[in-house]
Design a binder for these strands. Structure first.
Length: 276
DNA sequence: AGCCAGGAAGAAT
DNA sequence: ATTCTTCATGGC
C-alpha cells in the first residue's frame, strides 16, 4: 500500500469525476470514494485542501485520474455564456479517466438500454465470478476468463439479452492487437469496434472516449437526445453525433460529458429537492 | 404497476 | 437508405 495526494482545485472533483457516468466500479465510503480499475483499487479521501489516494499502485492511479490535461484551458475555450457554460460550471471538476480498453468495452456493452445502478451490479457480479480474488475486492477478469465463461454464464448473472454480445466480444478481443488499435485514427478505430456483434455507434463512441481517450467523438444516448430535443427535433442519434463532432471538434467528448452529467443529475436533484 | 434505462440487431418498408 | 420491432431485466 502506498499513498499519494491529488491537488484539489475547481478543476478536479472526485465525486463529479466518478458520478458522471463514465465508470461503474466505485462506491462512496466515509470521507470519499473507493474505486476499482482493472486489478487495482484505491481509496480517495477528501482531506479538505487535497485528496489522499491510498492504493496498491500509485503510478497506475496517477495516470488513471488524468492530471495531464489542461481542463481550465479547454473549458475557457468553450464558454458560450449560455447552456454550455451552465453545464461546465456544474461539472467543472470532471476528469475523463484513462480506463482500460477491455474493461471499457465490456462495461459499455452492458450499459446499453440499461440503468446505471443495474449496470454496476452486472459488472460487479462478473468480477466476483471470474476475477481474481485480491482480498477484499475482485479484479476485473482477464480476457481469457471472460472468453471461456460462455454465454450462459453472462445470462445467469443477469446480463439479459446482452449475454451473447459479451460472450462474442470476449472471444473476438482475444485475437485483437490492442497496441495496433491504439494507433488507428478515430474513424478507423470506430469501424473496428462497430464490427463487433452488440457494439453500435453509441457504445463504440463511449469506448473511444473512455477507453481510448479520443475526444473527437460525441456519444448520443437518451439523455443527450433530451438535451437537444428542441434544437434538433426527430434527428437520428448517429446523425446528431456526427453533427456535434463537427461543431465541437477535438473537444466534443468533453462537451458531451458535461452536458450528460448536467442533464442526468439535475433531474434527480429536481425530484428530491421538494422544498424549492 | 408500469415506465424506462448511457441501444443494437434484424426485419420491414 | 430510413423507420419499426424485438430483445431481458430490474430500479424507481
Amino acid at each position: 500500500m502506498t499513498t499519494f495526494s491529488l491537488e484539489k482545485t475547481p478543476y478536479f472533483d472526485i465525486a463529479a469525476t466518478l458520478e458522471c457516468g463514465q465508470v461503474f466500479r466505485f462506491v462512496p465510503i466515509d470521507g470519499g470514494y473507493r474505486v476499482c480499475a482493472t486489478s487495482h483499487r484505491a481509496d480517495v479521501l477528501d482531506r479538505g485542501d487535497h485528496y489522499d489516494v491510498i492504493c496498491d499502485d500509485a503510478d497506475f492511479f496517477k495516470r488513471y485520474f488524468d492530471f495531464d490535461t489542461d481542463y481550465a484551458a479547454i473549458q475557457a475555450g468553450l464558454e458560450d455564456g449560455g447552456a454550455l457554460s451552465e453545464a461546465i460550471a456544474f461539472g467543472r471538476g470532471i476528469h475523463i479517466l484513462r480506463q482500460d480498453p477491455i474493461e471499457t468495452i465490456f462495461s459499455f456493452i452492458v450499459s446499453q438500454n440499461n440503468h446505471i445502478p443495474r449496470i454496476k451490479g452486472i459488472i460487479e457480479r462478473i468480477c466476483e465470478a471470474l476475477g481474481e480474488d485480491k482480498g477484499g475486492y475482485f479484479a476485473f477478469p482477464t480476457l481469457e476468463a471472460l472468453a471461456s465463461a460462455g454465454e450462459d454464464f453472462y445470462a445467469s448473472i443477469g446480463a439479459g439479452y446482452r449475454a451473447a454480445y459479451l460472450d462474442r466480444a470476449a472471444k473476438a478481443m482475444l485475437v485483437v492487437d490492442l497496441e495496433g488499435w491504439s494507433r488507428l485514427d478515430t474513424p478507423t478505430l470506430r469501424a473496428q469496434l462497430l464490427a463487433m456483434y452488440g457494439v453500435g455507434r453509441k457504445v463504440a463512441d463511449c469506448i473511444l472516449l473512455f477507453g481510448f481517450n479520443r475526444f473527437d467523438v460525441f456519444p448520443v444516448d437518451t439523455w443527450i437526445k433530451k438535451v437537444y430535443a428542441d434544437v434538433y427535433p426527430d434527428m437520428p442519434a448517429d446523425k446528431m453525433s456526427t453533427l456535434l463532432v463537427q461543431k465541437y471538434g477535438k473537444y466534443a467528448g468533453f462537451v458531451q460529458q458535461w452536458l450528460f452529467y448536467f442533464k442526468r443529475t439535475k433531474k434527480t436533484m429536481d425530484k428530491s429537492n421538494i422544498l424549492s
